[in-house]
């Protein structure tokens, strides 16, 4: 894509655009227009895992009304969805299915990890069957802490995601996954092993943080 498509003509400032808009002339770039369109119609996958799913449903009901942000169209099929809201504890038995759903979604796609469990295992972190964060297998765009997060928090997460989409460049090294040739949109699905998932994490998207344990009394 040429520079013309992605950047505004030089010399036109924001006040100028406002003035033009008042006169009925909309001046924009293709990139801005494209991102504006898709950021305001993010269709989530109708996919509930645990407690957070109830708050996700509450967010789509009359009081919180996620329709105000263009995201009320919960699609039952991953083929029609743009956004995977991982709403609740991902167990090891469920993790392969979540990754498979993610793989089935067409690009451009985004992932919200809703709640402490989806982020890190949350209160169930010490469980033998609990995956310690969905980001071990798929890339997460927005993390929403809370147990469960209130519907307002989900709305805020959605608005943050919209901001992120609006800021994406269509060309260059910062272009999103689906516009680059060097990245894959397919993530390996873990297998059920005899004691754990195999592999227990996808090293391409997740690395264990390097931390040092401090003994008592050590400075």
């Amino acid at each position: 894509m040429s520079d013309f498509a992605t950047t505004l003509p030089t010399g036109i400032t924001e006040p100028d655009r406002d003035e033009l808009r008042r006169q009925g002339i909309l001046l924009t770039s293709l990139e801005e227009f494209y991102n504006w369109g898709r950021s305001n119609s993010v269709w989530p996958l109708q996919f509930g895992l645990a407690c957070c799913a109830i708050e996700m449903i509450a967010a789509s009901m009359a009081r919180f009304d996620i329709a105000r942000f263009g995201s009320e169209v919960f699609r039952p099929s991953p083929r029609q969805a743009d956004l995977l809201i991982v709403s609740g504890t991902v167990t090891k038995k469920m993790a392969p299915q979540v990754v498979r759903l993610w793989n089935q979604m067409p690009e451009p796609k985004y992932c919200i990890a809703m709640g402490a469990c989806a982020i890190s295992g949350g209160p169930f972190k010490q469980g033998y069957n609990v995956l310690k964060g969905i980001d071990r297998f798929i890339p997460v765009d927005i993390y929403i802490p809370g147990c469960p997060p209130r519907p307002e928090a989900l709305l805020h997460g959605l608005m943050t995601l919209q901001e992120k989409i609006r800021g994406q460049k269509l060309t260059g090294p910062d272009a999103p996954r689906h516009l680059r040739a060097d990245t894959t949109c397919d993530y390996p699905v873990p297998e059920f092993g005899e004691h754990d998932l195999e592999p227990p994490a996808n090293s391409a998207v997740w690395q264990a943080p390097t931390m040092m344990r401090k003994e008592k009394g050590q400075a």
Binding site: K93, Y128, K132, F192, H195, M211, R213
Partner: peptide, 24 residues
Amino acid sequence: ILMWDEFKDHPMRKDYVEPDDYEW
């Protein structure tokens, strides 16, 4: 019923050793 069919251990036993899979 709760774990997958390939699973070999019995996790509620007192001497079960869980996978060492969470960070500090």
